[in-house]
C-alpha cells in the first residue's frame, strides 16, 4: 500500500517537474481523449468549420496564433477584419479535395482544433496534437471556452466570457419580461434557397429572444427541409433568411405575398460577423439580443444592440468597430 502511494507520489512529482521545465502537459478534450500539448501554445491550426473555430480564438485575442488561412467557400469579410493576417496564411482544406494533412504536419502546430471525430482521429494518428471541441447543446459553449482557456493559459478570459454569456442572457430575459406563449410571434429561420432550417441552435435562440420557432419539434437532427407550402402554412410573423440575396428572392416571390412576415415587412437577414450569427458562433449572446430586437422592437432598441456589439468586439476580440462596420455586420452576408 505504502509502496503504491510512493509510486503515485513519484509520478506526480515527475509530472510537476516536467511542467515546471516547460516541456508538456496532458489535457482531456471534449471527446474524452488525452492530448499532450506543449506548455506554451503558439501555433494553432483550425480544421473543419474554420470561421467558427477562429471565432473562439478571436475571443481570447489570439488572432496571431492561427497559422492557417480560410477555405474559399468559408471565407467571410469580417474574419479578415478581425484577423487581417489570415489572408496571407496557407489554406489547408477545401470542400472538393479535403484536408491537406501533409501541409498541416509541415506547419508544426502546437495545437490543432477540430469539431468532428473523424478528422480528430485522422490527425491524432499522425501524431498531431488534435483537440476536439464539441458544441451540441447550446450552452456547451461555456464548457468549450473553459477548456480552451485552460489550454491557452487564458483561464481568466474564459471565465470572463462565460460570465458575460450568462449575464447577457439574464439581461435579455429581464428586459423581455414574461412573454405569454400566445404573444410570442411565430418565427422561421430559413435558408431559403434550400428551404431548410439549417441549424438546431436556432431552436434555442429564437425562444430566448421571445419568439416561437415554427420548426421547433424537439428533433435531434441539425437541419430540417420542408416545402414552400409548409412555409406558407406556418405563416411566420418574422422571417429570418441567410443572406441579402435570399431576402430579394423572398420579396420577389408572388407565392409568399400572403405570408404575414412578408406582408408586414418583417423579413430580416441574419447578421454576419466572425461567422453567421444565426448558426453556432462565439457571438451567440449578440444573436439573441439581435433576434430580440427584431421580434420585440418595442422592448429592445437598435442603439442598445449597437452599443452591445461595440462593447463585445472590443472586450473579447480587442477590435474596435466603426459605426459603418457595425451596420455592415447587421446587414448580413451579401449572399450568393
Amino acid at each position: 500500500m505504502s509502496s503504491q502511494l510512493a509510486r503515485i507520489l513519484c509520478i506526480a512529482l515527475a509530472l510537476l517537474a516536467s511542467v515546471a521545465a516547460g516541456e508538456c502537459r496532458t489535457i482531456v478534450d471534449m471527446d474524452g481523449r488525452s492530448v499532450t500539448l506543449p506548455e506554451k501554445v503558439a501555433r494553432i491550426v483550425t480544421v473543419g468549420p474554420v470561421p467558427v473555430l477562429n471565432g473562439f480564438l478571436f475571443a481570447f485575442g489570439r488572432q496571431q496564433s492561427i497559422v492557417n488561412g480560410l477555405p474559399r467557400e468559408l471565407a467571410r469579410k469580417y474574419q479578415f477584419i478581425f484577423a487581417p493576417d489570415l489572408a496571407k496564411k496557407p489554406i489547408l482544406q477545401s470542400s472538393s479535395s479535403g484536408l491537406a494533412v501533409e501541409d498541416i504536419v509541415g506547419l508544426r502546430p502546437d495545437l490543432v482544433l477540430t469539431m468532428d471525430r473523424s478528422a480528430t482521429d485522422r490527425l491524432s494518428a499522425l501524431g498531431l496534437p488534435a483537440v476536439l471541441l464539441n458544441w451540441r447543446e447550446p450552452e456547451d459553449i461555456k464548457a468549450l471556452m473553459t477548456l480552451l482557456g485552460a489550454i491557452l493559459d487564458e483561464k481568466k478570459a474564459a471565465e470572463d466570457y462565460v460570465r458575460y454569456f450568462d449575464e447577457a442572457l439574464a439581461r435579455i430575459r429581464t428586459t423581455l419580461g414574461s412573454v405569454d406563449e400566445s404573444r410570442r410571434p411565430r418565427v422561421l429561420y430559413v435558408n431559403y434557397r434550400r428551404l431548410t432550417q439549417p441549424h438546431r441552435i436556432a431552436e434555442w435562440w429564437i425562444p430566448h429572444a421571445g419568439g416561437r420557432s415554427v420548426t421547433s419539434d424537439g428533433r435531434s437532427e441539425e437541419s430540417v427541409t420542408f416545402s414552400l407550402e409548409q412555409l406558407i402554412a406556418w405563416n411566420p410573423e418574422v422571417l429570418i433568411v441567410a443572406d441579402r440575396g435570399e431576402a430579394e428572392l423572398v420579396a420577389a416571390e408572388p407565392r409568399l405575398r400572403d405570408v404575414s412576415a412578408v406582408r408586414s415587412g418583417r423579413v430580416h437577414v441574419a447578421p454576419a460577423g466572425a461567422h453567421l450569427w444565426a448558426n453556432r458562433t462565439i457571438e451567440q449572446p449578440l444573436t439573441v439580443l439581435w433576434a430580440a430586437s427584431i421580434i420585440h422592437p418595442e422592448k429592445f432598441s437598435g442603439t442598445m444592440l449597437e452599443s452591445e456589439m461595440s462593447a463585445f468586439y472590443e472586450r473579447f476580440f480587442h477590435v474596435s468597430l466603426s459605426k459603418e462596420q457595425i451596420d455592415e455586420i447587421l446587414a448580413g452576408s451579401a449572399g450568393r
Partner: peptide, 8 residues
Amino acid sequence: ARSASIIE
C-alpha cells in the same frame, strides 16, 4: 414526399 411530414 410533400405531405407525409414537415420534412420534404
